[in-house]
Nucleic acid binder design. Structure first.
Length: 104
DNA sequence: ATTATGACCCGAT
DNA sequence: AATCGGGCCATAA
């Protein structure tokens, strides 16, 4: 399969369960490029699988809501994650409880 | 092949 | 704690 870096990102993002969040660095790492967090962001922005890839479940390395220019921006994202059951600390996600981990 | 860009990350001040 | 700057890397033109 000609799975490019971005394709892996999509696959990984699709696997993020509800109520959990993953970091760009995490996805990049799982995709094989631990330092390509930036590229992950660019790919997420393109987001060709909009409803399939829960890009709103992808946050910064420390759980901070980076990026996102959709709708009301970070506000919408925060609200959505909250609704999904993600623990929030002010404007930050509680990675201690809601950080997704690929355990396969 | 090269250039330009970007929803990041981390160390230093 | 907040701010600044540099690095790193895939994608598109």
């Amino acid at each position: 399969m000609d799975l490019s870096f971005k394709d892996r990102i999509y696959e990984l993002a699709k696997q993020i369960p509800r109520g959990k969040v993953a970091t760009y660095g995490q996805l990049a790492k799982l995709a094989g490029k631990p330092k390509a967090a930036r590229t992950v962001g660019v790919i997420m922005k393109h987001n060709p699988f909009a409803p399939v890839v829960p890009c709103h479940r992808v946050v910064g390395s420390k759980g901070d809501l980076v990026g996102f220019s959709a709708g009301d921006g970070l506000a919408s994202k925060k609200k959505l994650l909250k609704e999904e059951g993600v623990a929030f600390i002010k404007d930050r996600v509680d990675l201690t409880l809601c950080l997704w981990q690929k355990k396969f």
